[in-house]
């Protein structure tokens, strides 16, 4: 796959939370197979999707991510028996919450990519990157942060640290 060499006005920041056993290995396979995909994604490795706390997703958006990907083993293939089921349940609720606070759910993608699915990893990452690129930067959280800053509430390092750790 050779993406068109073109410059875009906006390069989205994509953060991917993946499990070691399936998706991380799938992304490795994409590498060993020399597949090509947009370079916007930054991968964070977890033992299992079960370890992924929804707070991390919020944190990622807060840090300026324009899109977030969460990916693990297919249902039934979890290396830890059932971690991905717990994750699925947790994120089903979390999505509702995000929607409620006004985050466009198109910025958040959940997927299953196995260790054998290098091609699927490329597809998922490419799709999300292009979708988010078309949506433009994620501003909601940044605006919120600015507002709070402007109100003068966060003006000491202690407060800043407390804010960061929300």
């Amino acid at each position: 796959m050779h993406p068109e060499k073109q410059t875009h006005a906006f390069e989205p920041k994509i953060i991917a939370f993946v499990c070691t056993w399936c998706t991380y290995a799938g992304a490795d396979l994409a590498g060993t197979s020399r597949m090509q995909y947009p370079s916007n994604v930054r991968v964070l490795k977890f033992p299992c999707t079960g370890r992924i706390d929804p707070v991390f997703i919020l944190k990622a958006f807060q840090q300026g991510a324009d899109g977030v990907l969460v990916s693990g083993c297919h249902p039934g293939d979890c290396h830890y028996i059932a971690g991905n089921f717990h994750a699925r349940r947790r994120f089903a609720v979390f999505r509702k919450l995000l929607e409620f606070i006004g985050v466009d759910l198109n910025r958040l993608q959940f997927s299953w990519v196995s260790a054998a699915e290098g091609g699927k990893w490329v597809e998922v990452v490419t799709d999300l990157t292009e979708r988010v690129r078309a949506m433009g930067p994620m501003t909601e959280f940044k605006e919120l942060a600015m507002e709070e800053q402007w109100s003068g509430a966060i003006n000491t390092p202690e407060l800043q640290e407390a804010y960061n750790s929300i």
Partner: peptide, 10 residues
């Protein structure tokens, strides 16, 4: 413990 971390996120 197998180290999946599901408990921590829960």
């Amino acid at each position: 413990c197998s180290g999946c971390g599901t408990c921590q996120a829960t």
